[in-house]
C-alpha cells in the first residue's frame, strides 16, 4: 500500500498519541475512576477519621503541648499509617490491570493506538495521584488538629512523615500493580495483595524475630533484613526524622545509627524507593511481554 493511497483514504491524519499524551489520558481516566470508586472514598474517609482521632487522642492523653505532644501523635499516626496505607495502595493497584482484563475492557484498550507501557504507567500515575490526594486529605485535617493543640512545633517532622507516607504508598501501589499484571482475575489479585499486606505488616516482624533466634543472626544482618521490608524502612525513617535516636529499637537501631550516621534517612528512603521502582519495572516488562491478553 503506497503512502499516496493511504492519504487518499484518510481525510484526517491518523496519528497515534504521543507517549506522554496517551499516558496522560489513561492517568486522568484512572484518577477520575478512583475518586468515584466507593472503596476509595471509604478508605479516604476511614483514614481521615482515624488520623484525626489518633491526633486528637494522642494530644489529649499527653496532657502536654509542644514537641512532646507531637511525638506521641506521630507515633500514633505511624502505627495507623503502617496498617491502613499499604492496604489502600495494594488493593488499589491489584485492581488496575486484572480488573480491566476481567471486564474485557483490556482487549478494547489494547486495540487502540497505544502501547502496553502507556496503559500501565498511565494507570499507575492516576492511582498514585488519587492516593496522594486521599492521604493529603487525612493529613491535612490531622495537621489542623496538631496546629490547634501543639502549635507550629514539629512542622518539618510532619512534612517528612507525609512525604515518607506517600513514598510508602507508591511502593505498595507498585507491588499491587505487579500482582495485578500477574493475575487473571481481580478477586485473585486482591486476595494475593491481602496476603502480601499481612506478610509485610505482621509476618515479617515475627519471621525476623524467629529467624534472629534460630539462626543467631548478627545485628547487621537483622538490620539489613529489616530494611528490606519497606514498612520497617518507613518506620525507622519516621523515627529518625523526629530527631529521635534509633536506640529505641535496641542494639540493631544503635548499630544502624552508629554505622550510617547522617546517611540513615537517605538509606531508608532509598530502600522504599527501590520498592517503588523494581516492582513497577517488573510489571512493565511482564505486561509488555505477555503472549496473551
Amino acid at each position: 500500500m503506497s503512502a499516496q493511497a493511504i492519504s487518499v483514504a484518510l481525510p484526517r491524519p491518523s496519528i497515534p498519541p504521543t507517549l506522554l499524551g496517551g499516558t496522560w489520558s489513561f492517568a486522568r481516566r484512572e484518577f477520575r475512576d478512583a475518586m468515584s470508586s466507593r472503596w476509595f472514598v471509604l478508605y479516604t474517609v476511614a483514614f481521615t477519621v482515624l488520623a484525626v482521632g489518633v491526633s486528637f487522642l494522642s494530644l489529649s492523653g499527653s496532657g502536654s503541648h509542644g514537641f512532646a505532644g507531637f511525638g506521641r501523635t506521630a507515633a500514633g499516626l505511624l502505627n495507623l499509617i503502617m496498617l491502613v496505607v499499604p492496604l489502600m495502595a495494594l488493593t488499589a493497584g491489584a485492581g488496575a490491570i486484572a480488573g480491566e482484563r476481567e471486564r474485557g475492557t483490556l482487549m478494547y484498550l489494547l486495540a487502540q493506538p497505544v502501547s502496553r507501557s502507556q496503559i500501565l504507567i498511565g494507570k499507575y500515575v492516576g492511582l498514585a495521584v488519587a492516593l496522594t490526594c486521599s492521604l493529603c486529605a487525612g493529613f491535612g485535617v490531622s495537621a489542623g488538629v496538631l496546629a490547634w493543640r501543639a502549635g507550629g512545633v514539629g512542622v518539618r517532622s510532619f512534612v517528612v512523615l507525609v512525604g515518607l507516607t506517600i513514598l510508602l504508598a507508591l511502593a505498595m501501589l507498585s507491588v499491587g500493580v505487579l500482582i495485578s499484571v500477574l493475575s487473571r482475575r481481580s478477586s485473585v489479585a486482591v486476595g494475593i495483595s491481602l496476603f502480601v499486606w499481612l506478610a509485610l505488616v505482621f509476618l515479617s516482624d515475627l519471621g525476623l524475630m524467629a529467624g534472629s533466634l534460630i539462626f543467631k543472626l548478627r545485628v547487621q544482618e537483622i538490620f539489613a533484613l529489616a530494611a528490606l521490608n519497606p514498612l520497617q524502612s518507613f518506620k525507622m525513617g519516621v523515627i529518625v526524622s523526629m530527631n529521635a535516636s534509633l536506640d529505641v529499637l535496641g542494639p540493631v537501631g544503635a548499630y544502624a545509627s552508629h554505622v550510617l550516621g547522617d546517611a540513615m534517612p537517605w538509606v531508608l528512603a532509598g530502600s522504599i524507593l527501590v520498592w517503588v521502582t523494581l516492582p513497577l519495572t517488573a510489571a512493565m516488562v511482564i505486561f509488555a511481554r505477555r503472549k496473551s491478553i
Binding site: I6, L10, P16, G22, A111, P113, V114, S115
Partner: peptide, 8 residues
C-alpha cells in the same frame, strides 16, 4: 503497533 493501530 501504535502507528499501525492508528490506521484502524
Amino acid at each position: 503497533g501504535r502507528a499501525a493501530r492508528a490506521l484502524v
